[in-house]
């Protein structure tokens, strides 16, 4: 306590330090205040200028750079995504076109097959029909000839029976032809 009191002596000692006067106007303290102001302010300035301001400025700048980098990267990713989207759409449309062409090809092939099957079927049927018709005509002609023969024979027999005279086959034919022509 004593030591503190000894040390703690007010600077304005002596006649000029009238009690009640402003301590701010005591010129004897000015040199000391200016000296310590210069010292403390100078230290603060040097430390601020050389250490703290570069460090703080560096932190803020680094953050700005980082944000700019991130934005750049985001833009790059966005571009990549857009490219991927375009590629996907291209692939999709080409796949769709391919699918359509495959479908069209298939359809054409099937149509051709159907058409060829139809034509072969038709020709086969046509052949069968014409065969059958031929057979029918043959049979018809055959039948007519048999009818004629039968008519000639019958006529001959009738004539023999009626007038008892032999008739030539030619005469019978002529007579039949004239009858048929009538």
């Amino acid at each position: 306590m004593n030591a503190i009191n000894i040390a703690a002596e007010t600077v304005p000692h002596g006649e000029e330090a009238a009690s009640g006067g402003l301590p701010q106007m005591d010129v004897s303290t000015f040199a000391g205040q200016l000296f310590w102001l210069a010292l403390t302010f100078g230290i603060l300035f040097v430390m601020m200028k050389n250490y703290i301001i570069p460090r703080l400025g560096g932190i803020i700048e680094e953050r700005g750079d980082r944000i700019a980098d991130d934005l750049d990267q985001a833009a790059e990713f966005k571009q990549q995504a857009e490219e991927a989207q375009i590629a996907y759409e291209d692939a999709l449309s080409s796949a769709r076109a391919k699918a359509q062409s495959i479908a069209a090809d298939q359809r054409n092939a099937i149509d051709q097959q159907i058409a060829s099957m139809q034509t072969s079927m038709e020709t086969e049927l046509g052949e069968k029909i014409s065969d059958a018709e031929k057979r029918i005509t043959d049979m018809k002609e055959n039948a007519q000839e048999k009818v004629r023969e039968a008519a000639v024979d019958t006529t001959k027999a009738i004539v023999e029976a009626l007038i008892e005279e032999d008739t030539t086959t030619d005469a019978v034919n002529t007579a039949l032809n004239s009858v048929i022509a009538r």
Binding site: V11, S28, T29, A31, G32, Q33, F35, W36, T40
Partner: peptide
């Protein structure tokens, strides 16, 4: 000049 370490310092 009195450059003592004062309460101001």
């Amino acid at each position: 000049f009195d450059l003592s370490f004062t309460n101001s310092s």
